[in-house]
Design a protein around this nucleic acid. Structure first.
Lengths: 192, 192
DNA sequence: CATATTTCTTAACTTAAGTGAACGAGTTAG
DNA sequence: CTAACTCGTTCACTTAAGTTAAGAAATATG
């Protein structure tokens, strides 16, 4: 599990053994059971999550309805907005599957970053990369229909369709569960 | 115009006179006429834009149709993906109004950043902030209807409705120009 | 100044998503 | 084991967006 982390980091910066040990000494790895709520609306979370194994999701509760907006799976990093904008969370984070997460917090980050400037560099590279990816995803979402978005998801993250309940996928695609059901039936019909 | 830039920067880091002069010596300010295309699909742009005055927009051409996905106005920064992912652009950038832009490129950034680590820190803060904002915008987009998105835009960026043609706003809202027109008429009716 | 061209609106019609309800399959809890 | 609940699907109906076309108004161009 540590190797997965170090392999990921090595894409951005190369660490010495000392640095690796410093990281490991922080006790960052956590097992989390399916269904666990990691963050609730209104909380001021300082925690940063990195998914080593499993899946977590971000969702809002609007008019009593869950609206899922993001799934984070293997090697995805999730930084709640509080870490950046200091406002209490307006969404929830929960665990879709039994997962192994790397959980860090602002204090730790500050400490590590000041000791090892490399982490700082990596963080910058990461957030720039995520910013670009986020914009591309948003653009694709805006410029395509629900059906195209579904087919696109089928291409890019086929695993999600297996591991996540459909009603959560629906709001992720910006539609209602019934519409996703119908849309899928429509596509099957077309193929035949 | 310089003050606008320095005021913006001062929100992140404080610059010495030396640093300010170094920045100014780079000749970053450019006047750009309305309609100018700053970046075309397929190009590998190294340029980073910061809007001091005016408005620029990002759009794709899909099946011969323009699809606008973003507008950048005063104090917004636009970093094309090439700077991050090294792939040729799949979108266009053009000037909506006569504008004054700060135009930088990767070489300049590298040079400035190595001389003044402060800029590096600012870039990191900026990209983290933009990442969070981008996620919030995407979440709002996913969880709301075209009508809600229009009303939301009316609240958050009322200026855009004045300065940008409606058919560009339409795709920005994820719909067709005719639908935006109809939607506006519907809202007017409701109010009365 | 006259003529294109662009921009916005309207309308009629088609297609797809939202809504409310019902049903069965599978799961969970008492 | 049964009752309650969750999840996905289907259906009928409503609402809104896509499509095609036409025309008016504003803007740009020779």
């Amino acid at each position: 599990m540590q190797d997965i982390l170090f392999d990921f980091i090595s894409k951005y910066v190369s660490l010495t053994e000392d640095e690796k040990n410093a990281l490991l000494s922080l006790d960052l790895f956590h097992s989390v059971k399916k269904g666990t709520v990691l963050l609730k609306e209104g909380q001021k979370s300082q925690e940063i999550y990195f998914v080593l194994k499993g899946c977590i999701r971000v969702y809002y509760i609007i008019d009593g309805e869950e609206k899922t907006t993001a799934f984070y799976t293997e090697l995805d990093a999730l930084t709640p907005h509080f870490v950046i904008n200091k406002a209490p969370s307006d969404y929830f984070i929960s665990c879709v599957e039994d997962s192994i997460l790397l959980v860090s917090n602002t204090d730790m980050s500050v400490e590590v970053n000041s000791k090892f400037p490399k982490f700082d560099i990596m963080c910058r590279m990461l957030s720039e990369e995520l910013l670009a990816k986020g914009q591309i995803d948003f653009d694709e979402f805006k410029t395509s229909s629900p059906e195209q978005r579904y087919l696109n998801l089928l291409q890019k993250r086929p695993d999600l369709l297996q591991r996540v309940p459909q009603h959560q996928l629906a709001s992720f695609l910006g539609i209602k569960p019934q519409s996703l059901s119908r849309l899928r039936a429509r596509i099957l019909k077309k193929k035949s």
